[in-house]
Design a protein around this nucleic acid. Sequence first.
DNA 1: TAGATTGTTAATCGATTAACAATC
DNA 2: TAGATTGTTAATCGATTAACAATC
Lengths: 212, 212
Amino acid sequence: MNKNKISPAVVRRLPKYFRYLTNLENEGIEKISSRQLSEITGFTASQIRQDLNHFGGFGQQGYGYRVTDLKNSIIKIIGLNQEYNVAIVGFGHIGQAIYRYRGFDTKKFNVLGVFDLEDYEALDGKVKVQSIDKFEDFLTKNQVDIVVLTVPKEEAQKVSDMLVGKNVKGVWNFAPTNVKVDDNIPVENIHLSESLYTLIYYMGNPEQYIEK
Amino acid sequence: MNKNKISPAVVRRLPKYFRYLTNLENEGIEKISSRQLSEITGFTASQIRQDLNHFGGFGQQGYGYRVTDLKNSIIKIIGLNQEYNVAIVGFGHIGQAIYRYRGFDTKKFNVLGVFDLEDYEALDGKVKVQSIDKFEDFLTKNQVDIVVLTVPKEEAQKVSDMLVGKNVKGVWNFAPTNVKVDDNIPVENIHLSESLYTLIYYMGNPEQYIEK
DNA sequence: TAGATTGTTAATCGATTAACAATC
DNA sequence: TAGATTGTTAATCGATTAACAATC
């Protein structure tokens, strides 16, 4: 496992491999060659082989890759073989959508707490939303791995400042701003407006659009 | 305007320039050099100058860039000087979050219709959700520029197939799958799970994380 | 004019693709 | 063994950074 210097481009393809392999597995397909995967994913076979070999030799010459084995390997590479404790800060439309999103395995993502401006009960009493005033104390008393930030941009940095020294391992930021946290804590941004604006640019310049 | 071959990397920075320049303008700052912008954005001054010069010479030697002028230029480059008609297909958590999202200028994005499995009224009667059966006919009778796809992945391709020949100009896809549409229609994907999984990878390998 | 900063070309760096020997 | 396909090195391509002449 030469994990020394995996490029961001490779890292962002890992979840895609996971997705395509999961689909293949669900279709009952047991083996796949880099050539076949290439047709499905749109990546070149060469790129697929090189990507995978950053993490080890998962294939078999003359045969290809066993779908389930490769999928399980990628699960471990990404870290999806573990559970994660989550706190959602900001329980507006996006916070609620994330809370209820069925797209990820809910067994693996354990929402420990939900925070907003004040205490209240949401979703017919099923969710106890806590005041943001209690957030720092909560982080001290609970091991929160992932903080999901869905607060307005004015508040995003204030909340981020509360994470210092709390053993939070990552921030998933939906606020339309770039927050600063400890250097060793990764931040993954979902900037909805930027995504929409990129689409609009290509709508006006479709000849420049390159699929995928 | 040499728009011949703008690289995707440059295009994705345009909304970021727009965001930073908007902030600067709101702070009342009138001029900025590429050096100063570099400190704010984290891009190199060289990159900023080169990015902008793909679209024209917006600066003034020895002075820098006028914030408002540059912002307005970028608005036009992206295409944010126009209005867009939007249809939201899928009115679950994410569809609703997009519908109500305040992050983008609602005057520019005109939601013409909302579609889901069946007719009903949502949000205290304020939103008439229409059955997906009426979607194709709706597209024929209305100029929909942007289709926001927030349906389950099994339905995403079916809905995409309805867009053929309907003069839709772009698809903003939240379904965790890659949909196929006409080659000249750009598709911008928001794959939430992939974003979260990328974060998790870096949480397990923080030394590989490169800010931004 | 002198100082500052752009616009632009050239050099570097990194990521993708091609090629092929290794091997199942 | 022969055919297929990987793992890996080398070649290419593209994007970023550096440098500097142009010019405000």
